[in-house]
Structures are given as structure tokens and as C-alpha cells.
């Protein structure tokens, strides 16, 4: 089943094009890497799927719906920036997710929070950047969504945190769901991906499975990426 479908999707910021005629499908049960250098349109695509941006042209649907109230209930979204209000405590954030998302597993989230040694009464303001990112990821991965859209989940964190984040994703995602991970740190994520989509200057330049790339080209996705995006 197609969870995310784009058809000739285009978006420009003023006169600068961010996506030009992107068409793609993401099927449920797959972990897909949305790979490309900075400014290739990864975040724009994910924001369009969340309805935070409006397309200039073409269509984007999530589980057959235009982004909106209905699709938001099925999508679990990790933005590329810190968005949890700083004044909120962990308990308040848990309340917030439990109130609005029927598929939120509060017990699982609390267990992960405890495992990290974070006090529930602690406020976001009192946490380090890495801890904030972990808390945000825990909330996102504690939902049984149909589509996880993870924008740069491992950007700007230390290698240990990176491992923690990746294993949290693998051990928590709903196996009937699709996971889209956008990143430019390919070597770190490639082992957990089924498929990859290469974006360059707003266009899809390659769509393939990781094992097929390794089998037919005899190189890792990371090496292929360096080849395709050679400066």
C-alpha cells in the first residue's frame, strides 16, 4: 500500500525553486532514506507532506489524503529543529501527546524516558541539546503511526546518541508503517534502510533498494552518494 505519494510536486521559495516536479511513492513496511546534500529539497518535501507548506504545483497525498487533520492523525513527524516549548516539563509533554494522539503509547514513552535517566518533572529548558532531541524522538516513536517522517534525526549529535536514535527507531516503529528518514549522513543510516531516494536540486535522481545498489554496483550507498554528488 502506498503511504506517501507525490505527483509532479513543485515548490519554490520566491524565485528559488526547492522542488521541481517530484513524483515518488513510499510503500508501507519500508524504511526509506531521503538522501541529498544540504538544500536539495528534503525538508521541503517533508514539510509539504505535513501540510506546513502549500505546494505550488502537483499533488501530495498521505494515505490517500491531502495533508490536513485526517493525515496528521496517521503521521508521526520529527521536525529538523527543536519545537517542544521550552517551558514544558516531560509530564506536560506526555499529557500533550496523550491528549491529541489516540495512537500514543504513554507507557512506552515513560519507559524510554526513565531508561535515559530523565526526571519527568524536568523542563525542556533544563535539558542539553542532545537530551531535547532524544525526548522529541521518544515522543515521535511512541506513536503507532502509519507513516513516520523523520527529518534529520541524527544531524548534529554525537556518535553514541546517533546509535541510540537509530536503535530507538528500529525497535519502536510500527512494522506495518513506512519510515522516511531524511539525512545527508548516509554511512550512519544505510544499514537500516530498505530503499533510498536521492534528491538533488529539487529533483529525484535515483530510487533503488540498498541491497540492489550494493549488489549491482559493488559499492555502498554512501560511496555511490559521494560519486553522484561529487562537487
Amino acid at each position: 500500500m502506498n503511504v506517501l505519494t507525490c505527483n509532479a510536486l513543485s515548490k519554490a521559495y520566491g524565485k528559488t525553486p526547492a522542488l521541481s516536479g517530484v513524483s515518488l511513492n513510499v510503500e508501507s513496511g519500508h524504511i526509506v532514506g531521503l538522501l541529498g546534500p544540504n538544500g536539495s529539497g528534503k525538508t521541503t518535501l517533508i514539510k509539504l507532506a505535513n501540510g506546513l507548506l502549500t505546494p505550488d504545483d502537483g499533488t501530495i497525498t498521505v494515505c490517500g489524503m491531502r495533508p490536513g487533520k485526517g493525515s496528521h492523525a496517521l503521521v508521526s513527524y520529527l521536525p529538523e529543529r527543536a519545537v517542544l516549548p521550552e517551558w514544558m516539563s516531560v509530564t506536560q509533554i506526555l499529557d500533550f501527546y496523550a491528549d491529541f494522539y489516540a495512537d500514543f503509547n504513554r507507557d512506552a514513552a515513560q519507559e524510554m524516558i526513565r531508561h535515559l535517566g530523565i526526571e519527568e518533572k524536568q523542563r525542556i529548558r533544563q535539558m542539553s541539546k542532545g537530551t531535547r532531541e532524544k525526548v522529541q524522538l521518544i515522543m515521535v516513536m511512541s506513536r503507532q503511526a502509519k507513516l513516520y517522517l523523520l527529518d534529520e534525526p541524527i544531524g548534529g549529535v554525537d556518535p553514541a546518541t546517533r546509535d541510540y536514535i537509530l536503535s530507538t527507531i528500529i525497535s519502536n516503529y510500527n512494522p506495518e508503517a513506512a519510515v522516511v528518514i531524511s539525512t545527508h549522513l548516509i554511512a550512519d543510516v544505510e544499514k537500516i534502510l530498505d530503499d533510498v531516494i536521492f534528491l538533488n536540486r529539487g529533483c529525484v535522481v535515483l530510487e533503488n533498494s540498498v541491497d540492489e545498489i550494493r549488489e549491482t554496483r559493488g559499492v555502498s550507498v554512501d560511496a555511490l552518494f559521494r560519486e553522484v554528488f561529487k562537487c
Binding site: 506546513l52 487533520k69 485526517g70 529543529r81 517542544l84
Partner: peptide
């Protein structure tokens, strides 16, 4: 603003 990433993606009209 930034918090809108959280608020505007809630399953709310």
C-alpha cells in the same frame, strides 16, 4: 513559528 511544527501537525482542524 517553530512551535507551529508541533501545533499545526496536530490532528485538529
Amino acid at each position: 513559528r517553530d512551535e507551529g511544527y508541533l501545533t499545526m501537525t496536530l490532528p485538529v482542524s
